[in-house]
Amino acid sequence: MSAAATDHDHALVYPEEPLYSRITAGKLAMWMFLLSDGFSFSGLLLSYGILRGSSKLWGCTTEALVSKFGCIEEPALGINFTALLTFLLICSSVTMVMSHASMVEGDRKGALKWLGLTVAGGLLFLVGQCWEYWGLFGLFGPHHGLIHEGLKFGATHYATTFYCVTGFHGLHVLTGVIYLSAVWIGTAMGKTDANTLEVAGLFWHFVDLVWILVFTFIYLIPN
């Protein structure tokens, strides 16, 4: 029996590894997954860049372009609303890291509070993305959604790449919300530790990190 095992039944003490210090197996596995996921996003963003860079027309978004190219008009992507979504994800990142901090300090209630706020931030982001796509049946104002306004998947590279990249990211947010909800339940039941929260946090921060790049490349860089 090691000293750690006699100290506490559940306390796993990771030995100091010369190259990777005291990183836990779960954390290392999550980093490996995130790297592979990062390559998936890289592939999507790079193909987006190649298609956009080689296209003469990227988004038939003005009447001038319609008359010049004879294309069907598509909506321009809104910056202000997605900036708000970016703000939401940044907020949820800070609440995630606060949740982990509370757990490290032994404050389980605090960890639950911050983690709950993180999940709420993720849910709001998803509602925002649904509103952007579908307009949510006019529930939140006159906006009817990009699909209704003519941004159809498969119609142009502009539309297809937009839905592929933001949709893939949205699926990650959904996965994150489900994952963090499961961790919240586990934490409420006293079955998680700070390492569990840190590993879950890695996934959530990655989702935020990717959105930072998606926001810039898809929404901010002008034609």
Binding site: T6, H8, V13, E16, R22, G106, A194, E198
Partner: peptide, 29 residues
């Protein structure tokens, strides 16, 4: 190193942590 770490963990575990198996401190060496 393991012994020293275990000692520090023991010291860091609060009474509340004992109630929840001390995961908060123990899981985070």
């Amino acid at each position: 190193v393991v012994e020293a770490d275990a000692a520090v963990r023991k010291a860091a575990v609060t009474p509340d942590d004992h109630g929840s198996h001390g995961h908060a401190a123990a899981g985070h060496g």
